[in-house]
Amino acid sequence: MAAFLEVQNLVKSFGTNTVVKGVNFAFEKGEFISLLGPSGCGKTTILRMIAGFERPTSGAIRVDGDEITHLKPNQRKLGMVFQAYALFPNLTVGDNIAFGLKIAGMPADQRRARVEEMLRLIGLPGFEKRFPYEMSGGQQQRVALARAIAPKPRLLLLDEPLSALDAKIRVSLREEIRAIQQDLGITTVFVTHDQEEAMSISDRIVVMNAGNLDQMGSPHEIYNRPSTRFVATFVGQLNTLPEASFGPNRAIRPELISLAPRPETDTTLTGTISDVGFLGSVVRLRVDVSGTPINIDTFNSHATTPPQRGDTVTLHLAAKDVLTLGA
């Protein structure tokens, strides 16, 4: 299958400061892609270059085979959702959703039908006449999503759309966004600094670090086979293993260590429990292995009580689960 969204050697400098340093990626139609990284890594700048709000210093952006690198934002036929909702405060919800359709010259009756369809899709039927200030943040952001997808854009761009919402709505809305995206099959680029958010809804993740693309792959690949030290530490929890017994730059995920032997385990370590954190479904133990702190995640169980602080325990792990961290 040919690439639907293609970014080639994309570079962006502001004066002497290069914030995107030659990024390449290509994605297929219908994929949900996350650009993940800490603030200042260049992920938002890439999104803004795809949208047309920033001009690339060099490189090319293609959507569905069309080169859009130098088109104005209003010529690109894209939809975008902003962190701060950015609904037009003078327009009703219905007029906000219909804005792009009206600009495109769609007749009034078709517009009304499309607005109704969109409101049903986002679970806010009958909200046409409301004004944005009469709605909660989560509702406003859903309207912003409806406004972005109403004109059937080629690409949906999401610029940290969940950051301004509180935790519970953040989780429910991200599931809703993913469901709508899969329903419509719309290619989506999602910018976030939250690795859990990225892993839970993406088909593929692009991990950015200081202007470079560090790794690109499915959430499963990114988590289990991180290609750089940065990706390994930024995505998920990680234990650095004692150099004396494993050699330098060896690490392992906390859920891959257990207190009892498993069929695949072939390595043991002995240590003292220094802290027990009961998180509900997961019990997080901190074990001191001759000076190296190691975190272990075990599932809570009815039958057994968690070990106590000061207990001496044997840790079991499999050598194949040990990650070697590169530069």
């Binding site: 209003n74 975008m80 950015a86 037009f88 003078n90 804005f99 761009l157």
Partner: peptide, 28 residues
């Protein structure tokens, strides 16, 4: 009003400068 973001939101929806000033900025 956040004219920067409102302008970008209108631009990506296909509006030109005149439409942005006339339909979004002026009424607000």
């Amino acid at each position: 009003i956040d004219i920067g973001t409102l302008t970008e939101a209108a631009q990506i929806a296909g509006a030109n400068q005149l439409q942005i000033i006339g339909q979004i900025i002026l009424p607000n």
